[in-house]
Amino acid sequence: MKMLIKQFKQTGLLLCLLFAIHSGFSQSGSDLRINEVLVDNDSNYVDDFGQRSSWIEIFNTAYNNVNIGGMYLTNDPKNPTKYLIPKGDPMTIIPQRNYLVFFADNRTTRGILHLNFDLEHSDYLALYDVNGKTMIDEIRFMRQNPDISFGRLNDGSDEFGMLNKTTPKASNYTGTVVTAGEEFVKMDPYGLGMAVIAMSVVFMALILLYLVFKNTRRLYTIDLKKLFTKEKMLKDINETQDISGEVNAAISMALYLYRNELHDHEETVLTIKKVARTYSPWSSKIYGLRNPHR
C-alpha cells in the first residue's frame, strides 16, 4: 500500500513537472503577435533580393526568446497549416521584444522567410502553433493604399489601425517615448506624492507582517486536543510557554558554565589505557625504511 502511495506521489510530481514545462513552452509561443502588415509595397521595404513584396511583421511580446520554427502562417481560415515555418534555422528565433519579417511573395525558393502565398486577394492572416490547431493570433485587414501599412498602434497592443509610418523590424509607435519616471515627475514634480505613496506601501508591507506575526503565535500554539479539555490546563500551558529571553539567556549561561566546569574537572582525571598493537607488515619495523642495514 505504502509503495502504491509512493508511486502515486512520484507520478503526480512528474505529471505536474511535465505540465509546468509544457505550459511554459506554450506560453512562449502564445506571446507572438502579427504586428504589422503591408500589402501594397510600392516603394517600401526590399528583401535580400532587392525585390518589393507584401510583408508581415511578427512581434515577440515576451521577455525571452521565442522560436517560431514549426509554427504555421496562413491567409486561408480553412487551411491553418498553409505555410510551415521551417524548424532548426537560427533565423526563426525571435529575441525578446523583437521582430521577424516574412515576405508574402509566393516564392519559397528565396528562403524560409518567403511564404508560399501572397496577400493580393487576401484580407486575413493567422499564426498557428506547432500542432497546427491552436491559433496564436489572427488579423483581418482592409484594402490598403500603397506603402501604408496596417497593424497594431503599439507593439503587441489590441488596437489596430493604419500606421502613419511603415516600421518593419521596428516599433510601431513612432511618437516620443516618455518613461514612467518622466511621467511620474510631470504629475508629482516635488516628489511628495512618491514619498507618501511609497512610504504607505512600505508601511503596508511591514504592517501586514506585524499583524501576521502578532497573531501567528496564537494560531500555531493552539492544541486542538487540549481545546476540549479543562480550561485550567490551557492556562498552565500558556504560562509555561511565555518565558522571556532573559530567562533563556540565564539558563543557557548556567548550562554553559556547568559544562565548562565539568570539562575542567575532566582534565584532572588521569586514565591509563592499555595500548595493544596488532602485528601488520605495513607497520613492522623489520620492513621499515629507517631500519639500519647490517
Binding site: L192, M199, V202, F213
Partner: peptide, 23 residues
C-alpha cells in the same frame, strides 16, 4: 513585531533624498 514599523519609518530617508534630488 512592533519593531517592524520602526524599520518602515526609517525609509523616510530614501524618499526625502528623492525629493531633494528632484529639486
Amino acid at each position: 513585531p512592533k519593531l517592524m514599523l520602526v524599520g518602515a519609518a526609517a525609509q523616510l530617508g530614501i524618499f526625502g533624498a528623492y525629493a531633494i534630488a528632484l529639486f
